[in-house]
Amino acid sequence: MNTEWKPNNWIAVLFGVLFQPFVFLYVNRPRYFFFYLALTLCCVFLMQYPASTALFSEGGKAQYWPYAITIACAIHAYILSANYDVSQKRSWCARWWTTLLCVVTVYSSLFVTKTFFYDFYSIPAASMSPALNPGDYVVVSKYGYGNYSYAGIPVLQTKSTAAVQRGDIIVFKKPGNETTDFIKRVIAGPGDKVYYQHKRIYLTRACDGCSENELIDNVEIDDAAESEFSMYQETLDGKLYTIQQNTNRPDYTQHYYRQPGMRLGEWIVPAGHYFVMGDNRDNSLDSRYWGFVPEQNIVGKAVYIF
């Protein structure tokens, strides 16, 4: 009978080592499950947060925290199972197979969500400042872009059906370095012509009747009186965003990507490709230097920043 049931001590230890918080479902203590889950998530977040990464690196004061949580779960679960009160009501999840089912369900849902729908990315550098700064996180919508991966491991490649628009911030695999995710702003799409000169963007859109070399609206909102950077508001296809430039630093035109048949600093975006730039214009290695982003390399679009 349910009132005579008692969790197995060694199954509790095994589950505590392998599944950490989920073991407390098996030993019929759901409140501890939520406690250890919150503790684990806090630890994971701190490990990803740039300001505290050093604490979890080799030699850091917190490098053994994950192991400590695992050991604590196993020992605590063993104590609870050894001293289990058989008269208490048995929860539906207090079975080894339902606990395993919960583990599989949660991790499968997490895998599907992060692979095909939404994922989190941390910002390691300042190439997209001021919109994105080191330590910021972005939620990236991946559905429809066709480049599906989990934790950097390719899972599925399909034809892209999502619309990429000028002004979007996208995550992508840089051509020639497809193990690393990059994040930049889309400036031009297939068939567009871009001319970048004196820190200004001139754009000829790929459409009938579009004007030649339209100067992208760029208004100074903060000069460099107290810092090396000046802030400008740029408007591209109705999207308003802020960029920063070091007006004292010359453009490194000698390092620009040279497209055959085009003058220096001018590019025509090929079919199925995009031209991207960082908002921190003088501290961004982007399409000006290495060329275009193939459509199949796009991972997703940034939809939320925190």
Rank of each mutant, 00 (worst) to 15 (best):
N2R: 14
N2I: 12
K6R: 14
N9L: 14
G16N: 02
Q20K: 04
Y26W: 04
Y32F: 11
L37H: 08
L41D: 02
L41H: 02
L41I: 07
Q48S: 13
Q48M: 08
P50S: 11
F56M: 09
E58I: 04
E58T: 08
P66A: 14
I71N: 00
A77P: 02
I79R: 15
L80A: 00
S81A: 10
Y84N: 02
Q88V: 06
W97A: 05
T98W: 05
L110N: 12
Y118R: 11
P124D: 04
G135T: 10
V139F: 00
V140N: 00
G146T: 09
P154H: 05
A163L: 09
G167T: 00
F172Q: 01
G176Q: 05
D181G: 14
R185T: 05
G189H: 05
V194G: 03
Q197W: 05
H198Y: 15
A206C: 00
L215T: 07
L215E: 06
I216M: 01
D223P: 01
A224S: 12
E226W: 15
E226K: 10
F229I: 12
F229R: 10
S230M: 14
M231I: 14
D237A: 15
K239V: 02
I243V: 13
Q254Y: 10
Y257L: 04
Q259I: 03
Q259T: 02
P270I: 02
M277K: 00
G278M: 06
Y289Q: 04
E295Q: 07
V303K: 06
